[in-house]
């Protein structure tokens, strides 16, 4: 492997959020295959960070900083990938917090966890209407539609998205979470997977694409 790809990997492992974009530019300038840089550099780096987190050696801030570093480098490398080629991911996840709910920290953590574990994540943000979830899931050919709600008053909206989704886009799997959400509730509204915390969401997502 080229030395600069190894440096890219180390930059993720060392959370070099501020400088990694410059390094990524050098990668492009030197004519290194951007897909190789992404898969053998960034993805390998974030995998190491994720494993350390899993073992309890590092904590959430380190994981988030690692993911931020990866994101900064991807912003440079992805546009350089030749048309028609795609980086290998575990699947595409469209994620958001349901309408009238603006609690996003849990959803953001799930996004970070999923992207640091090899998923491509499209985050629709908070207060997302049902129609937007349904439209984006179809448009972006998502493998997984992930939704969160923090309030018992907004929680039922997830069910109102799952029902039409199953009809119009049956191949898209659903993953739900949020403080009041339970496994029992998930079954009741027909969600395919539920997770009680952000770490568990990765296993749930892997189950869905596995």
């Amino acid at each position: 492997m080229e030395e600069i790809v190894t440096r890219l990997k180390d930059a993720v492992i060392n959370y070099e959020m501020e400088t990694i974009a410059d390094l990524a530019k050098q990668v492009v300038d030197q004519g290194v295959d951007p897909l190789v840089a992404i898969e053998q550099g960034l993805a390998e780096g974030i995998k190491t960070v994720g494993e350390r987190f899993g073992k309890g050696e590092i904590f959430l801030p380190e994981l988030v900083m690692g993911a931020e570093a990866m994101k900064a480098a991807l912003a440079v490398l992805e546009p350089a990938v030749p048309q028609g080629q795609h980086r290998a991911t575990l699947g595409k996840v469209v994620i958001g917090t349901v309408q009238d709910d603006i609690h996003e920290i849990g959803k953001n953590l799930v996004s970070t966890m999923l992207s640091s574990n090899g998923f491509e994540v499209v985050d629709l943000g908070v207060n997302v209407p049902a129609a937007d979830f349904l439209k984006k899931a179809g448009e972006l050919k998502a493998n997984i539609l992930a939704m969160s709600a923090l309030m018992t008053t907004t929680m039922p909206r997830m069910g109102e998205i799952i029902t039409p989704l199953k009809k119009d886009n049956p191949s898209v799997k659903t993953l739900i979470g949020g403080a009041p959400v339970t496994d029992v509730y998930a079954k009741e509204i027909g969600a395919d997977e539920y997770s009680g915390d952000a770490s568990g969401a990765v296993d749930s997502a892997k189950n869905l694409v596995g």
Partner: peptide, 9 residues
């Protein structure tokens, strides 16, 4: 009836 179909506020 159940919620649904509202536009984004």
């Amino acid at each position: 009836p159940l919620w649904g179909g509202e536009s984004k506020v």
